[in-house]
Amino acid sequence: MTRYDPGLQPERTQLAWRRTALSIAVVSLIAARALPMILGSGVWVVPGIAGVAASGALWVLAARRARAVDRALSPVPHPDRMPDGRLIVALVGFTAAAGALALIVLLGVAR
């Protein structure tokens, strides 16, 4: 009996991570374009560029995480451990920071 079924679940998980990274990139590009026009300062391009960089890092780290899970669960014994939740915590932190920035922008526009 094998521990690992290489069915579609790992592929769906990888696609979900890619979809998340792509969503962050698209919203970041929209923010980089729209925020300077709305707020009138070129410095508001920086959060958009940071978001695009974060989405690229998420894409790479999610691919690395998928390979680590595949190695750890494969039928051939490997000393690898399952990846921990650091990538998930980083994504939650990024989302919280983006939400805080959005709240700051909304309060600044409302004045």
Results as ranks from 00 to 15, higher is better:
residue 54 A to Y: 09
residue 26 V to Y: 08
residue 101 L to S: 03
residue 69 V to P: 06
residue 66 A to S: 08
residue 83 P to I: 03
residue 29 L to A: 09
residue 105 V to H: 00
residue 11 E to S: 15
residue 99 G to C: 09
residue 76 V to N: 06
residue 77 P to M: 00
residue 105 V to T: 01
residue 86 R to D: 07
residue 29 L to V: 07
residue 110 A to G: 04
residue 104 I to C: 07
residue 30 I to A: 14
residue 24 I to E: 00
residue 78 H to V: 08
residue 57 A to I: 13
residue 34 A to Y: 02
residue 31 A to F: 05
residue 1 M to C: 13
residue 64 R to H: 03
residue 100 A to W: 02
residue 2 T to R: 15
residue 87 L to G: 04
residue 31 A to E: 05
residue 37 M to Y: 13
residue 101 L to K: 01
residue 4 Y to M: 15
residue 66 A to V: 02
residue 25 A to F: 06
residue 36 P to I: 07
residue 72 A to R: 03
residue 78 H to N: 13
residue 2 T to L: 09
residue 8 L to V: 14
residue 40 G to R: 07
residue 100 A to P: 00
residue 98 A to L: 03
residue 18 R to I: 02
residue 77 P to N: 00
residue 92 V to C: 07
residue 90 A to P: 00
residue 63 A to M: 05
residue 104 I to V: 10
residue 82 M to A: 14
residue 33 R to Y: 13
residue 9 Q to C: 14
residue 109 V to R: 02
residue 89 V to K: 07
residue 41 S to I: 09
residue 92 V to T: 12
residue 12 R to L: 12
residue 4 Y to Q: 12
residue 105 V to S: 00
residue 103 L to T: 10
residue 66 A to D: 06
residue 91 L to I: 11
residue 101 L to Y: 10
residue 77 P to A: 01
residue 103 L to P: 02
residue 3 R to G: 12
residue 86 R to I: 14
residue 66 A to Y: 01
residue 42 G to Q: 07
residue 107 L to T: 05
residue 36 P to S: 07
residue 100 A to S: 05
residue 71 R to T: 15
residue 98 A to F: 01
residue 96 A to W: 10
residue 111 R to H: 06
residue 66 A to H: 04
residue 16 A to K: 14
residue 53 A to Y: 08
residue 93 G to L: 11
residue 16 A to S: 12
residue 40 G to F: 11
residue 92 V to H: 11
residue 102 A to Q: 04
residue 64 R to D: 08
residue 83 P to S: 03
residue 74 S to M: 11
residue 90 A to C: 02
residue 15 L to K: 15
residue 28 S to G: 08
residue 84 D to R: 15
residue 34 A to L: 10
residue 97 A to E: 05
residue 15 L to A: 15
residue 3 R to F: 13
residue 48 G to F: 05
residue 92 V to F: 09
residue 21 A to V: 03
residue 27 V to E: 09
residue 54 A to V: 02
residue 29 L to G: 11
residue 83 P to M: 05
residue 46 V to Y: 01
residue 66 A to F: 03
residue 109 V to A: 07
residue 35 L to I: 03
residue 108 G to M: 11
residue 12 R to F: 11
residue 3 R to P: 01
residue 89 V to H: 11
residue 94 F to S: 02
residue 50 A to P: 05
residue 40 G to C: 09
residue 38 I to R: 04
residue 16 A to W: 04
residue 1 M to L: 14
residue 100 A to N: 03
residue 100 A to E: 02
residue 55 S to A: 15
residue 111 R to V: 13
residue 35 L to Y: 04
residue 49 I to F: 00
residue 52 V to E: 00
residue 16 A to P: 02
residue 11 E to R: 15
residue 40 G to P: 03
residue 12 R to T: 07
residue 5 D to M: 14
residue 64 R to M: 05
residue 51 G to L: 04
residue 111 R to D: 04
residue 27 V to P: 01
residue 108 G to F: 12
residue 88 I to T: 14
residue 53 A to I: 13
residue 6 P to W: 09
residue 101 L to W: 08
residue 4 Y to N: 13
residue 99 G to M: 06
residue 87 L to C: 03
